[in-house]
Design a protein around this nucleic acid. Structure first.
Lengths: 111, 111
DNA sequence: CAGTCACGTAAGCAACTCCTTAATCAATGA
DNA sequence: TCATTGATTAAGGAGTTGCTTACGTGACTG
Protein backbone atom coordinates (compact mmCIF):
# COMPACT_ATOMS: atom_id res chain seq x y z
CA UNK A 1 0.00 0.00 0.00
CA UNK A 2 1.43 3.34 -1.05
CA UNK A 3 0.05 6.81 -0.50
CA UNK A 4 -1.69 7.04 2.85
CA UNK A 5 -5.00 8.81 2.43
CA UNK A 6 -5.25 10.82 5.64
CA UNK A 7 -5.24 14.56 5.14
CA UNK A 8 -1.84 15.31 6.63
CA UNK A 9 -0.17 12.63 4.51
CA UNK A 10 -1.82 13.99 1.38
CA UNK A 11 -0.55 17.48 2.11
CA UNK A 12 3.01 16.43 2.90
CA UNK A 13 3.04 14.19 -0.15
CA UNK A 14 1.86 17.08 -2.31
CA UNK A 15 4.68 19.25 -0.95
CA UNK A 16 7.32 16.55 -1.53
CA UNK A 17 7.91 17.54 -5.15
CA UNK A 18 9.85 20.57 -6.41
CA UNK A 19 7.52 21.04 -9.39
CA UNK A 20 4.45 21.16 -7.17
CA UNK A 21 6.13 23.52 -4.71
CA UNK A 22 7.08 25.76 -7.64
CA UNK A 23 3.48 25.68 -8.82
CA UNK A 24 2.30 26.78 -5.39
CA UNK A 25 4.94 29.54 -5.28
CA UNK A 26 3.94 30.73 -8.70
CA UNK A 27 0.29 30.49 -7.77
CA UNK A 28 0.37 32.78 -4.80
CA UNK A 29 1.03 35.60 -7.21
CA UNK A 30 -2.70 35.21 -7.83
CA UNK A 31 -5.13 32.83 -9.56
CA UNK A 32 -3.69 31.46 -12.79
CA UNK A 33 -4.81 29.30 -15.69
CA UNK A 34 -3.26 25.92 -16.34
CA UNK A 35 -1.60 27.13 -19.53
CA UNK A 36 0.18 30.04 -17.84
CA UNK A 37 1.14 27.71 -15.04
CA UNK A 38 2.65 25.11 -17.38
CA UNK A 39 4.61 27.57 -19.50
CA UNK A 40 7.81 27.90 -17.41
CA UNK A 41 8.17 24.15 -16.85
CA UNK A 42 10.00 21.83 -19.24
CA UNK A 43 7.11 19.42 -19.06
CA UNK A 44 4.03 18.50 -21.04
CA UNK A 45 0.63 20.02 -20.26
CA UNK A 46 -0.87 16.73 -19.03
CA UNK A 47 2.00 16.32 -16.57
CA UNK A 48 1.06 19.67 -15.03
CA UNK A 49 -2.58 18.62 -15.00
CA UNK A 50 -1.65 15.58 -12.97
CA UNK A 51 0.39 17.63 -10.51
CA UNK A 52 -2.61 19.91 -10.12
CA UNK A 53 -4.77 16.90 -9.38
CA UNK A 54 -2.42 15.93 -6.55
CA UNK A 55 -2.56 19.46 -5.16
CA UNK A 56 -6.33 19.48 -5.45
CA UNK A 57 -6.65 16.12 -3.71
CA UNK A 58 -4.62 17.59 -0.84
CA UNK A 59 -6.98 20.57 -0.73
CA UNK A 60 -4.15 23.00 -1.52
CA UNK A 61 -5.79 24.42 -4.62
CA UNK A 62 -9.25 24.81 -6.07
CA UNK A 63 -10.07 24.66 -9.77
CA UNK A 64 -12.96 26.59 -11.21
CA UNK A 65 -14.13 26.39 -14.82
CA UNK A 66 -14.76 29.63 -16.70
CA UNK A 67 -15.50 29.07 -20.37
CA UNK A 68 -12.59 26.99 -21.66
CA UNK A 69 -10.20 28.13 -18.94
CA UNK A 70 -9.48 26.38 -15.66
CA UNK A 71 -8.49 28.89 -13.04
CA UNK A 72 -6.45 27.61 -10.09
CA UNK A 73 -6.75 29.28 -6.71
CA UNK A 74 -4.85 28.59 -3.52
CA UNK A 75 -6.40 27.30 -0.34
CA UNK A 76 -4.51 27.79 2.89
CA UNK A 77 -6.28 25.59 5.45
CA UNK A 78 -4.41 22.32 4.78
CA UNK A 79 -1.11 24.15 5.05
CA UNK A 80 -2.21 25.43 8.44
CA UNK A 81 -2.71 21.88 9.60
CA UNK A 82 0.70 20.81 8.30
CA UNK A 83 2.29 23.82 9.95
CA UNK A 84 0.61 22.95 13.22
CA UNK A 85 2.04 19.43 13.13
CA UNK A 86 5.55 20.62 12.34
CA UNK A 87 5.52 23.41 14.91
CA UNK A 88 4.17 21.16 17.63
CA UNK A 89 6.97 18.70 17.09
CA UNK A 90 9.64 21.32 16.66
CA UNK A 91 8.61 22.82 19.95
CA UNK A 92 8.74 19.59 21.89
CA UNK A 93 12.06 18.64 20.36
CA UNK A 94 13.64 21.98 21.15
CA UNK A 95 12.44 21.68 24.73
CA UNK A 96 14.12 18.32 24.87
CA UNK A 97 17.31 19.68 23.33
CA UNK A 98 17.31 22.50 25.84
CA UNK A 99 17.20 19.91 28.60
CA UNK A 100 20.06 18.08 26.91
CA UNK A 101 22.04 21.30 26.70
CA UNK A 102 21.51 21.91 30.39
CA UNK A 103 22.64 18.40 31.12
CA UNK A 104 25.75 18.82 28.99
CA UNK A 105 26.54 22.11 30.67
CA UNK A 106 26.31 20.47 34.05
CA UNK A 107 28.62 17.71 32.84
CA UNK A 108 31.15 20.22 31.57
CA UNK A 109 30.96 22.00 34.89
CA UNK A 110 31.78 18.88 36.84
CA UNK A 111 34.50 17.52 34.57
CA UNK B 1 11.45 9.81 -12.42
CA UNK B 2 10.02 9.51 -8.93
CA UNK B 3 11.43 10.76 -5.66
CA UNK B 4 13.08 14.14 -6.02
CA UNK B 5 16.35 14.18 -4.12
CA UNK B 6 16.58 17.76 -2.91
CA UNK B 7 16.56 18.14 0.85
CA UNK B 8 13.13 19.72 1.22
CA UNK B 9 11.51 17.02 -0.89
CA UNK B 10 13.17 14.30 1.16
CA UNK B 11 11.86 15.81 4.39
CA UNK B 12 8.30 16.29 3.14
CA UNK B 13 8.33 12.80 1.67
CA UNK B 14 9.48 11.39 5.00
CA UNK B 15 6.64 13.18 6.77
CA UNK B 16 4.04 11.97 4.25
CA UNK B 17 3.49 8.67 6.01
CA UNK B 18 1.52 8.12 9.24
CA UNK B 19 3.86 5.36 10.40
CA UNK B 20 6.91 7.59 10.05
CA UNK B 21 5.17 10.49 11.77
CA UNK B 22 4.22 8.14 14.60
CA UNK B 23 7.83 7.00 14.84
CA UNK B 24 8.97 10.61 15.15
CA UNK B 25 6.31 11.32 17.77
CA UNK B 26 7.34 8.26 19.72
CA UNK B 27 10.98 9.16 19.31
CA UNK B 28 10.85 12.58 20.87
CA UNK B 29 10.19 10.84 24.17
CA UNK B 30 13.94 10.15 23.92
CA UNK B 31 16.38 7.95 22.00
CA UNK B 32 14.98 4.48 21.40
CA UNK B 33 16.12 1.17 19.95
CA UNK B 34 14.57 -0.20 16.78
CA UNK B 35 12.94 -3.06 18.68
CA UNK B 36 11.15 -0.77 21.13
CA UNK B 37 10.20 1.43 18.21
CA UNK B 38 8.72 -1.47 16.22
CA UNK B 39 6.76 -2.97 19.10
CA UNK B 40 3.53 -0.89 18.90
CA UNK B 41 3.23 -1.22 15.12
CA UNK B 42 1.50 -4.12 13.37
CA UNK B 43 4.43 -4.42 11.03
CA UNK B 44 7.57 -6.51 10.63
CA UNK B 45 10.92 -5.36 11.96
CA UNK B 46 12.45 -4.89 8.48
CA UNK B 47 9.56 -2.63 7.52
CA UNK B 48 10.42 -0.35 10.45
CA UNK B 49 14.07 -0.50 9.48
CA UNK B 50 13.18 0.77 6.03
CA UNK B 51 11.06 3.59 7.43
CA UNK B 52 14.02 4.55 9.61
CA UNK B 53 16.22 4.60 6.53
CA UNK B 54 13.85 7.08 4.90
CA UNK B 55 13.92 9.25 8.01
CA UNK B 56 17.70 9.02 8.13
CA UNK B 57 18.02 9.95 4.47
CA UNK B 58 15.95 13.05 5.23
CA UNK B 59 18.27 13.85 8.11
CA UNK B 60 15.43 13.62 10.64
CA UNK B 61 17.09 10.93 12.75
CA UNK B 62 20.56 9.64 13.46
CA UNK B 63 21.41 6.02 14.14
CA UNK B 64 24.29 5.05 16.37
CA UNK B 65 25.45 1.49 16.97
CA UNK B 66 26.01 0.35 20.54
CA UNK B 67 26.77 -3.36 20.77
CA UNK B 68 23.94 -5.07 18.88
CA UNK B 69 21.51 -2.22 19.46
CA UNK B 70 20.83 0.64 17.07
CA UNK B 71 19.79 3.70 18.96
CA UNK B 72 17.75 6.31 17.06
CA UNK B 73 18.01 9.98 17.95
CA UNK B 74 16.10 12.92 16.53
CA UNK B 75 17.63 15.74 14.56
CA UNK B 76 15.69 18.98 14.28
CA UNK B 77 17.45 20.99 11.57
CA UNK B 78 15.63 19.56 8.51
CA UNK B 79 12.31 20.20 10.20
CA UNK B 80 13.35 23.81 10.70
CA UNK B 81 13.89 24.12 6.98
CA UNK B 82 10.51 22.58 6.20
CA UNK B 83 8.86 24.84 8.74
CA UNK B 84 10.52 27.84 7.16
CA UNK B 85 9.12 26.95 3.74
CA UNK B 86 5.61 26.41 5.04
CA UNK B 87 5.59 29.55 7.16
CA UNK B 88 6.97 31.70 4.37
CA UNK B 89 4.21 30.57 2.04
CA UNK B 90 1.50 30.73 4.66
CA UNK B 91 2.49 34.28 5.38
CA UNK B 92 2.42 35.44 1.78
CA UNK B 93 -0.86 33.69 1.15
CA UNK B 94 -2.49 35.22 4.15
CA UNK B 95 -1.29 38.67 3.09
CA UNK B 96 -2.83 38.03 -0.27
CA UNK B 97 -6.07 36.83 1.27
CA UNK B 98 -6.17 39.95 3.38
CA UNK B 99 -5.87 42.04 0.23
CA UNK B 100 -8.65 39.96 -1.32
CA UNK B 101 -10.81 40.56 1.73
CA UNK B 102 -10.22 44.30 1.45
CA UNK B 103 -11.11 44.15 -2.19
CA UNK B 104 -14.31 42.22 -1.49
CA UNK B 105 -15.27 44.67 1.23
CA UNK B 106 -14.83 47.56 -1.18
CA UNK B 107 -16.98 45.73 -3.72
CA UNK B 108 -19.69 45.12 -1.16
CA UNK B 109 -19.56 48.78 -0.22
CA UNK B 110 -20.06 49.91 -3.82
CA UNK B 111 -22.71 47.36 -4.84
C1' DC C 1 -20.33 23.69 -39.80
C1' DA C 2 -15.23 23.28 -39.54
C1' DG C 3 -11.21 24.87 -37.19
C1' DT C 4 -8.80 26.19 -33.19
C1' DC C 5 -7.87 26.88 -28.30
C1' DA C 6 -7.69 25.28 -23.47
C1' DC C 7 -7.66 21.43 -20.92
C1' DG C 8 -8.61 16.71 -19.45
C1' DT C 9 -8.51 11.59 -19.78
C1' DA C 10 -6.54 7.12 -21.33
C1' DA C 11 -2.97 4.05 -21.94
C1' DG C 12 1.57 2.73 -21.37
C1' DC C 13 6.23 2.63 -19.42
C1' DA C 14 10.23 2.93 -16.15
C1' DA C 15 11.09 3.81 -11.56
C1' DC C 16 9.77 3.92 -6.98
C1' DT C 17 7.07 2.68 -2.40
C1' DC C 18 5.81 -0.23 1.15
C1' DC C 19 5.37 -4.39 2.72
C1' DT C 20 6.58 -9.41 3.11
C1' DT C 21 9.75 -13.67 4.15
C1' DA C 22 14.33 -15.64 4.17
C1' DA C 23 19.02 -15.08 4.73
C1' DT C 24 22.87 -12.55 6.80
C1' DC C 25 25.77 -10.06 10.11
C1' DA C 26 27.53 -8.66 14.50
C1' DA C 27 27.66 -8.93 19.54
C1' DT C 28 26.63 -11.46 23.74
C1' DG C 29 26.63 -15.44 26.69
C1' DA C 30 26.44 -20.47 27.94
C1' DT D 1 32.25 -23.00 19.69
C1' DC D 2 27.35 -22.77 19.13
C1' DA D 3 22.95 -20.66 20.06
C1' DT D 4 20.52 -16.41 20.94
C1' DT D 5 19.43 -11.58 20.47
C1' DG D 6 19.01 -7.19 17.76
C1' DA D 7 18.96 -5.45 13.56
C1' DT D 8 20.08 -5.00 8.53
C1' DT D 9 20.19 -6.73 3.70
C1' DA D 10 18.26 -9.26 -0.22
C1' DA D 11 14.68 -10.61 -3.16
C1' DG D 12 10.21 -10.22 -4.68
C1' DG D 13 5.30 -8.71 -5.31
C1' DA D 14 1.25 -5.51 -5.43
C1' DG D 15 0.31 -0.98 -6.10
C1' DT D 16 1.68 4.08 -7.09
C1' DT D 17 4.09 7.90 -9.18
C1' DG D 18 5.62 10.82 -12.82
C1' DC D 19 6.20 11.32 -17.18
C1' DT D 20 5.07 10.55 -22.16
C1' DT D 21 2.02 10.51 -26.58
C1' DA D 22 -2.52 10.10 -28.46
C1' DC D 23 -7.14 11.09 -28.26
C1' DG D 24 -11.51 13.31 -26.43
C1' DT D 25 -14.38 17.32 -24.90
C1' DG D 26 -16.33 21.75 -24.42
C1' DA D 27 -16.14 26.61 -25.83
C1' DC D 28 -15.23 30.29 -28.78
C1' DT D 29 -14.50 31.93 -33.93
C1' DG D 30 -14.55 32.36 -38.93
Amino acid sequence: MTGADDELSLVFHALADPTRRAILSRLHGGPTTVGELAEPFAMSRPAISQHLKVLERAGLIERTTTAQWRTCTLRTEPLDEASEWVERHRGEWNERFDLLDEHLCRMKGTS
